[in-house]
Design a protein around this nucleic acid. Sequence first.
DNA 1: TGAATTTTTTACCGCACGGTTAGTAATCTG
DNA 2: CAGATTACTAACCGTGCGGTAAAAAATTCA
Lengths: 204, 204
Amino acid sequence: MSAQVPVGRPLTITEQARRAQLIGVTIDLVAEHGYPGTSLARIAEAAGISKAAVLYHFPSKDAVVRAAYGSVLESLTAYVGAEVGARSGAAAIEAYIRSLVAYTRHHPAHTRMIVEAIAGETGVDDTPHAASRRDSVAGLIDAARASGDYRPDVDPRATAVIVNGAVDAIVAESLTDPGFDTAHAAEELVTMLRRALGATDGER
Amino acid sequence: MSAQVPVGRPLTITEQARRAQLIGVTIDLVAEHGYPGTSLARIAEAAGISKAAVLYHFPSKDAVVRAAYGSVLESLTAYVGAEVGARSGAAAIEAYIRSLVAYTRHHPAHTRMIVEAIAGETGVDDTPHAASRRDSVAGLIDAARASGDYRPDVDPRATAVIVNGAVDAIVAESLTDPGFDTAHAAEELVTMLRRALGATDGER
DNA sequence: TGAATTTTTTACCGCACGGTTAGTAATCTG
DNA sequence: CAGATTACTAACCGTGCGGTAAAAAATTCA
């Protein structure tokens, strides 16, 4: 995901630095102007080099954008994965919700890219993300059901779609309303899930 | 929303027919190729006339797209509004969920446009929709709380964001996976909300 | 019929896009 | 220092975009 050099040479210092810089400015440009407003010329200008220099380091503009998306998603996945992996049952799903929302709160520049990657509006056609993410969450829900945390009649697939949609909406809402309390909304969602899916009703 | 002629003359027959046709082909083009793939030339070609003819009936390409979005949203709003308006309390929220999902099931060509309008990726900057939709749903939730259907401690705003996100995800999922059972997912969401928000726990 | 007006076409304009080419600095290396 | 490699720039190319101008059809109406 992070390297598209077939196998070749070990990348010089300059090469690594430029690639990292280009990925960085691309992330910022997408955050500011969205994908459609992120042109090759703008990327070059933001990096202080010419268009051709950008294409010297990457085979195409799409490759730059893809690398930027890859970088963000890798970082997000690492963070969320660590939080989720340390837990099991319902706690894993709750960690998924909290950590994903928390990540966007701490990396505002990454948020728009994440939202667009989720919505599939990346302009680059890949989007195995959506399906695999849904399946991952469905797996977590299934595990929570198997462990007895969740009632036996929950539908993991449908519930995964619903939970992901809710999480994405919370994140997306913070883009249009920066004052939106995403942490609180995440807690509301966690509480709702406990009541709706919990086998032993969490509280009350 | 449906007419952008300032006030002028009453629109000839041809004018009305062409406008309707152009709106129709635009909806279909967006459904097939998304907004970015819907160019003026394509709209003209699909309608069997020249680009200039399109711009004779509409002041700009954006106006065509806007009219198409308006047409779809008007139709959707009318349908959902009728279902919701006939009910109150929790039943109104459930009708909102069921009718919105049902609409997209019965109007597949409109679905992508609705999803993109929701995601704000219309290419046309207006998007008061997202905010007003959230506020409308928040109002419904608040009313359900006031009527005693929902527990008194629900947060209408945060819950509205979550519910809308879940509904949108169900609809969006059907775009990438046409076999996805949106009606069933809607029922799952309704059940979850009853358990999570209901003051008297719906069932169990 | 013939004039007025509607609808439409053809040809064009300028622009921003992604990408290529050829040459030029800069840097590394023997 | 010389030669090779790396890193880059300026200029250009073709394409598709939204939009405009002028004139030709088609239609309406007296």
